[in-house]
Design a binder for these strands. Structure first.
Length: 280
DNA sequence: AGCTCATGGCGAG
DNA sequence: TCGCCCTGAGCTG
């Protein structure tokens, strides 16, 4: 068998995975002096600003990750669509491919590839960056009223609002599709037609689903009572790392009602929904 | 070797 | 709304 480092995260992340990574990186590197470099070179200047310093904390806010150092500098990372972390035990191996950033101790090595954002921020810049991020259902300090204020006065569709990181930070394409299915709400309904009760149910559900997704680093949205249908009718039809109702199931029958799951393009992203369970 | 796809987000027009 | 950026995996030929 070929010896191969297994990537920690095989898939494109939503907020739950960023929180998971923050914990994982925190456990591996907090309170330790860390060697920081950029084998690819594109982050060489940033790496030099924190190289050799002690990591004090690692935070996730929505899909943004912040790594704090004892010289009051922060590495700010946004993985975008392609970014990936790989954490290995032991000495850092020779980097392969495009490695933007490495964090290294004698025991651990974390490699970052393909992020949309990888930069060093001062303490003040980091605070300002966090302030620009909307409420994150995973965070205990999140204020859902900020999201409600945006939703209930908006003529934008709830499908688009859920993808807006100023409104629901950390929600991505899977949670968007799945939370709307779970509440029987059409993605095309304008935000201002979402009731207070529906909003509160969506927020509470996101908090629960995404918090669970943080622990497992995967997205499961199927209620326990529906698992027999899901497992029985279409086992392993799509492996994206979790059990879901409609995400990537276009053209297949809805697990609950049998209607064909539909797909549409909404603002350049694929949207999935059941027209019978989510009328309107 | 060359396509296609991906759970994201930006700026230009 | 479109095009573009970041990267690698899994196809096809």
């Amino acid at each position: 068998m070929r010896s191969q480092a297994v990537p920690l995260f095989l898939t494109v992340p939503e907020g739950n995975v960023i929180h998971h990574q923050a914990r994982r990186l925190g456990r591996a590197f907090s309170k330790r002096a860390v060697r920081v470099d950029s084998p690819q070179g594109r982050f060489a200047d940033g790496a030099a600003r924190v190289d050799g310093h002690v990591i004090t904390r690692v935070e996730a806010h929505g899909k943004h990750l912040f790594i704090g150092f004892d010289n009051r500098q922060w590495i700010h990372i946004h993985l975008g669509l392609f970014g990936k972390w790989r954490i290995r035990n032991g000495e850092a191996p020779e980097p392969r491919g495009q490695v933007r950033l490495r964090l290294m101790t004698d025991e651990k090595c974390a490699e970052l590839r393909g992020p949309t954002v990888c930069e060093v921020l001062s303490d003040g810049e980091k605070k300002a960056a966090v302030k620009r991020i909307g409420p994150d259902p995973i965070r205990k300090d999140a204020d859902p009223e900020l999201a409600w204020n945006r939703v209930h006065r908006s003529s934008t569709t709830i499908g688009a609002l859920l993808m807006n990181q100023q409104v629901f930070a950390g929600v991505g394409n899977i949670y968007r599709a799945e939370v709307l299915f779970r509440h029987g709400i059409s993605p095309f309904r304008p935000g201002k037609e979402v009731s207070r009760e529906e909003f509160e149910a969506i927020w509470a559900d996101l908090r629960e689903l995404m918090t669970a997704g943080t622990k497992r680093a995967r997205i499961d949205t199927v209620r326990p009572e529906h698992m027999p249908e899901v497992m029985g009718r279409a086992p392993r039809e799509d492996r994206h790392g979790g059990e879901v109702y409609v995400y990537r199931r276009a053209g297949r029958p809805c697990y609950l009602c049998g209607a064909e799951v539909l797909i549409a393009e909404m603002q350049g992203r694929k949207l999935y929904w059941c027209p019978a369970c989510q009328p309107g």
